[in-house]
Computed example of a mutant assay.
Amino acid sequence: MNLLDGMLARRTTNGPFRPDPVSREHQHLLMRVAQAAPSHFNSQPWRFVLVENPQTVAEVARISGESMTELIDAGVFFERYRRYFRFTEAEMNARRDGIHIDHLPGPLRPFTRQVFSDAGLRVMRQLGVPKKLGEDNRRLVAGSPLLLAALLDRAEYRPGELSGFYSAFGLGAAVENIWNAVGELGMGIQFVSTPMEIPRQWQAIRELLRVPDDLELMAVYRLGYLPEDQKRPTIDWSSRHRKRLEQFVSRETCDVPETEARE
Score class of each variant (00 low, 15 high):
residue 190 Q to L: 11
residue 208 L to M: 11
residue 260 E to V: 04
residue 221 Y to L: 07
residue 195 P to N: 14
residue 226 L to S: 03
residue 3 L to T: 06
residue 243 K to H: 08
residue 136 D to M: 00
residue 215 L to G: 08
residue 40 H to P: 01
residue 138 R to K: 01
residue 170 G to T: 06
residue 143 G to C: 05
residue 124 M to A: 10
residue 9 A to I: 05
residue 43 S to R: 08
residue 137 N to H: 01
residue 89 E to F: 05
residue 251 R to G: 00
residue 81 Y to N: 07
residue 257 P to K: 12
residue 80 R to P: 00
residue 107 P to Q: 09
residue 212 P to Q: 13
residue 91 E to M: 00
residue 142 A to D: 05
residue 169 F to W: 11
residue 29 L to S: 02
residue 10 R to S: 12
residue 180 N to P: 05
residue 207 E to T: 12
residue 37 A to V: 09
residue 47 R to K: 15
residue 137 N to T: 08
residue 40 H to E: 02
residue 85 F to C: 06
residue 214 D to R: 06
residue 230 Q to H: 06
residue 32 R to H: 11
residue 74 A to Y: 08
residue 235 I to S: 06
residue 77 F to D: 03
residue 166 Y to H: 14
residue 232 R to K: 15
residue 245 L to P: 00
residue 143 G to M: 07
residue 257 P to L: 10
residue 159 P to I: 06
residue 169 F to M: 11
residue 210 R to F: 02
residue 252 E to R: 13
residue 102 D to G: 07
residue 229 D to I: 10
residue 116 F to A: 07
residue 9 A to R: 10
residue 161 E to W: 07
residue 97 D to V: 11
residue 218 M to Y: 05
residue 86 R to K: 08
residue 259 T to A: 02
residue 50 L to V: 10
residue 12 T to P: 08
residue 7 M to I: 15
residue 92 M to W: 05
residue 218 M to N: 09
residue 58 A to Q: 13
residue 73 D to L: 09
residue 168 A to F: 02
residue 83 R to C: 01
residue 73 D to W: 03
residue 114 Q to N: 11
residue 179 W to I: 12
residue 159 P to D: 09
